[in-house]
């Protein structure tokens, strides 16, 4: 009995137990995978590309009024598809409680301007006078934004 006392030294395992770490990593991975597509407001459209857009950080806010116009002219208010003529009421309802009175129009580059005009008309009837037309930064060559002359 007394001799066997030091025996535990023979079975010491020098490996780190990584199982809890893998668990945490997997959970983090899943969280990031789920959250990444959800961060976008409205539906995803192919935005027009322009040379010098301004930053519009408010368009990303959770309660921003984003109206998306798809290529075929269908209109989405945030992520719900609605007929254009109901847009006025919808925007009016939200405008009461809204801090940011601006409406963001997220129109597909190839949408007919007529469809956008219909949205603008309806949004205007709700009393909005400030619009943000969401666009992308135009990329020239390999992702380098072009230096513009006389830009802001």
């Amino acid at each position: 009995m007394a001799i066997a006392k030091r025996n535990e030294g023979a079975k010491v395992n020098s490996n780190i137990n990584v199982t809890p770490m893998v668990d945490v990593m997997l959970v983090l991975l899943i969280i990031f995978m789920v959250i990444t597509p959800m961060l976008q407001n409205g539906v995803s459209v192919d935005l027009a590309q322009v040379n010098n857009p301004e930053r519009m950080p408010d368009a990303e806010k959770e309660d921003a009024m984003v109206v998306s116009v798809m290529r075929d002219g269908t209109v989405y208010f945030r992520s719900d598809k609605i007929p254009v003529d109901q847009l006025t009421q919808k925007v009016k309802d939200r405008l009461v409680s809204q801090q940011d009175k601006r409406v963001y129009v997220k129109a597909d580059a190839r949408a007919r301007f007529g469809a956008v005009v219909a949205v603008v008309d309806n949004v205007r009837s709700a009393g909005v006078d400030d619009l943000g037309l969401l666009t992308d930064q135009k990329k020239v060559g390999l992702g380098a934004p072009r230096a513009t002359t006389g830009g802001q």
């Binding site: 301004e54 519009m56 950080p57 603008v120 205007r124 969401l134 666009t135």
Partner: peptide, 14 residues
Amino acid sequence: NPPQPKGLDALVPQ
């Protein structure tokens, strides 16, 4: 992380 939204400012005359 998703790119910062950018856009053009436009007004609608009331």
